[in-house]
Design a protein around this nucleic acid. Structure first.
Lengths: 229, 229
DNA sequence: TAGATTGTTAATCGATTAACAATC
DNA sequence: TAGATTGTTAATCGATTAACAATC
């Protein structure tokens, strides 16, 4: 296996700053496919081979990577391990963010018991709930704190990401409380539309129902196409 | 309130068939905002006012709607209730799909206990699991069936949507089993990349981790911007 | 070296926005 | 009617794809 030259731009350096959201949303996908290649002990891959596996064009893949640096070698392709490490760096996996979940309901517990954080270099450090009956309990070794102690906990511990899985109607108030702490971002499952402009921190709103609706649309379209045939 | 003319094209008629995926993915968002407007008893809305609320352009909104029909009135705007009903129709809410969940783990139970199906005109009719200890139990009044009886159940009952929340490694095999039944679509949470081309049915793959990674990217970018300032 | 494959520029395609005539 | 706002066409913008020189 050839060595990777050391003069090339690294992901940390950051090539452009105005990366399009289309590219950003493809990065986690690259991350997944590269992890899988690594697990299968694939050492190198060309943009062409990757494009076939990912059902994309080789051109797009090269363009995407080149937004952040020069990760490949002419005549060789991409070193899977190196490329994976660079994408991980871009996505902040190496930052080892700490996360807490607010809302110890079904979804909160499901996330707490999953590997979703660990698989991305993160650590879930706490759960929060208003229900005094839950406070003090543990789920998968994660302690449930009282919502009243949220600010105190954020001051005394490094909290990077806050996951909102409590009922929708308290989302805005809690987000406002969080805006005054030094947490770094909010992963919002409540259905409330939180905006960075109002909270002052990066926010990712998850609407699982939207995905279900999209499936329904696909089903309807497929049925219609069948009838018309 | 003016009456809606009856000569206009309806959603059922279907204007174009090659709707772009960008438009399709915005439909559930319109659905949500319109539902909220309805709940707030808003009777009419102009594309301009909607654009402000949704943080989009009025032009895009009008273009999107006109992919499916003429839902508004010049000089008046859109009748919220009518527009909502049309978008619902397009998304298949009125089809009253039945859904079952395979995998009665944390996520499966979280979905079973949520309103995600009911809020979209669907009914969750069954859970499935391989664990004989769970078979026969009920979660929120939904009976847990043995995975061995999946095909039998699909034959004897109307099953439209199958939700996959079991471990990833059995995703492909189960999807293959489902491809031989008359279910209509698969909502896949397992992380396995299932393709319509291999299973022969509409599929929606959900990657919650991708959304978390996107948040991490946003956080990193925001931090970097702060440092550079 | 010759072959392979990248990084990058140029061409194409599609999606968004702007403009305005139609019309309620 | 006059004002408002749609539906739709035309202009712009951005993203994807194709092509190819650079180079490992």
């Amino acid at each position: 296996m050839k060595n990777i030259k050391t003069t090339k731009k690294s992901a940390g350096a950051g090539k452009k700053s105005g990366i399009s959201s289309a590219v950003i949303h493809r990065l986690p996908r690259y991350f997944r496919y590269l992890r899988e290649l690594m697990q299968n002990n694939v050492l190198r891959i060309s943009s062409n081979e990757l494009s076939e596996r990912m059902n994309a064009t080789a051109s797009q893949i090269r363009q995407d990577f080149n937004c952040f640096g020069e990760f490949g070698q002419q005549g060789y392709g991409y070193n899977v391990k190196y490329l994976h490490s660079q994408i991980s760096e871009i996505l902040g996996v190496s930052e080892h963010y700490n996360a807490v979940i607010i809302g110890t309901g079904n979804l909160g517990r499901a996330l707490a018991r999953s590997k979703i954080f660990v698989n991305r270099g993160m650590t879930l450090t706490a759960l929060f709930d208003v229900d005094k009956g839950l406070v003090g309990k543990k789920f998968d070794d994660i302690f449930v704190y009282d919502m009243a102690d949220l600010e105190k906990y954020c001051e005394e511990n490094k909290v990077d990401i806050v996951v909102l899985t409590m009922p929708r109607d308290c989302a805005y108030d809690i987000a406002k409380r969080l805006s005054k702490t030094n947490i770094k971002g909010i992963w919002n499952f409540t259905g409330a539309e939180l905006a960075k402009s109002t909270i002052g921190k990066p926010i990712e709103n998850v609407h699982m129902g939207d995905s279900l609706m999209t499936l329904c649309y696909k089903i309807k379209s497929a049925e219609k196409a069948k009838v018309e045939k």
